[in-house]
Structures are given as C-alpha cells and as structure tokens.
C-alpha cells in the first residue's frame, strides 16, 4: 500500500462518516445542544469582577468544548459498531492506523465546528473579546481540538469492546485532558487580555506537542489494537 492509496482510504472513510452523521444526526445535534447549554449555564451562574472574567470564561469555554466533544467522540465509535460494521472494516485491506487517522479527522471536524458555534456564543454572553486576534484564536482552536480528538479517538479505540464504554471513556479521558484544558484555557485567556506574545506562543507549543504525542501513540497502538 502506498501513501496515496492510504490517503484515499482515509478520505473515503472520512466522507462516509460525515455522510452518515449528516443523515443520521446521531452525534452532532446532541453535541451542539450540550455545548450551548453548558456555555449558557456557566455564564449565567458566574458573576465575576472584570479582572477575573478572562481566566474563568476561557476555562469554561474549554470545559464546555470537552464535555460536548466527548459526546461526539463516544457516538462516532458507537456508530461504527452497529450492524457489525467494525467487523466489515477489519476485512478491508487497511491498517488500524488508517482507521485511527480517519476517526481522528472526523472527531476533529466535529470539535472544530462545535468551537465555531461556541466561541461566538461565549463572546456574546460573557462579553469576552476574542475577535481582536482571530488568527491566534483559530490556532488555539485547531491545536486544542486536535489534542482533544487525538486523545479521544485513542481512548475510544481502547474502550471499544467494553460494556460500560461511555462511562469508562469519560473516566479515562478526563485526567488525560487536564494539561490540554489548562494550556488551551491559558492561551485563550491571553488572547482575551490582548497579550498574544511569547508566553501565548509557549502555550500553543504545548498544545501542538500534546496533539502530536497522542496522535502518534494512537497511530502506533491502533495497529495492534485491531487484532482481536
């Protein structure tokens, strides 16, 4: 199998998952609903002095993204297990790593779209200004989402055959995501306080390293996880 064939397979898997999600509406509507509700409830329940708003609101944004993103990650895995489709996938000439990359991209798309909805709502309800540095916010959103998708897809693969999959997924994921949430929140706070400099860049580097590390572990482990 050459790289072009593998890229094509990833593309068709991604296409299939997005078409299935568009028609079934299995994961994304629940994800949006949860994200928006958490965002609004958080913002209504906190009345902070102006100087504390950026740090608290940034953390809330990423917590809301994490909780809602978990729903999408969990349901993406469940959808593949219905009617023996995961057995069907294992019969095609593609490696576990190829499937991991495709699922990672599907989850990344879901979380990026979620952030695309949540960030404007968050800016509106918390009066947090993120529009001054749109490029910086896009970088944080992409790297943060990539980290969340990389860990989520990996743990979703690991818990595939467990009965209490949803609960185990959350229990395993939440501790792993602590560094990501801290880094993403801090990078977002620095954007909100108009300090997009060296310190901001360090947090972004941490997000990039986190995403690359877990994506690499996911790609390597998926190769072995595919064998029953």
């Amino acid at each position: 199998m050459n790289v072009l064939d593998t890229a094509k397979q990833v593309g068709w898997l991604l296409h299939k998952d997005l078409v299935v999600e568009y028609r079934s509406r299995l994961a994304w509507p629940v994800m949006f609903l949860l994200g928006i509700i958490v965002t609004i409830v958080f913002s209504l329940q906190t009345s902070l002095p102006r100087e504390y708003l950026p740090s608290t609101a940034s953390t809330m944004l990423w917590l809301a993204t994490m909780f809602a993103g978990l729903v999408a990650i969990d349901r993406t895995g469940i959808a593949e297990d219905q009617d023996g489709c995961s057995v069907g996938l294992s019969l095609y000439p593609l490696s576990g790593s190829t499937i991991y990359v495709a699922k990672f991209l599907v989850n990344l798309c879901a979380i990026l779209v979620l952030l695309g909805v949540l960030v404007p709502i968050f800016s509106l309800v918390t009066d947090l200004s993120l529009a001054k540095h749109v490029g910086a916010m896009v970088i944080v959103a992409v790297t943060g989402s990539a980290g969340l998708a990389a860990v989520g897809t990996l743990v979703s693969n690991l818990t595939r055959d467990l009965q209490q999959r949803g609960a185990v997924l959350s229990v395993l994921l939440l501790p792993l995501l602590v560094p990501l949430i801290l880094a993403a929140s801090e990078a977002t706070r620095l954007i909100a306080v108009d300090e997009v400099g060296t310190q901001w860049w360090r947090w972004v580097q941490l997000l990039v390293a986190f995403a690359i590390d877990f994506a690499t572990v996911g790609i390597v482990l998926s190769h072995y996880l595919r064998e029953e």
């Binding site: 299939k16 028609r23 023996g84 489709c85 069907g88 019969l91």
Partner: peptide, 11 residues
C-alpha cells in the same frame, strides 16, 4: 460474509 450484514444503514 459474517453473520452480521456489515452495512451502514444510513447509506
């Protein structure tokens, strides 16, 4: 051809 159909029901 396993016992399951291995088909995506929304396709």
């Amino acid at each position: 051809k396993p016992h399951e159909d291995c088909l995506y029901t929304h396709l």
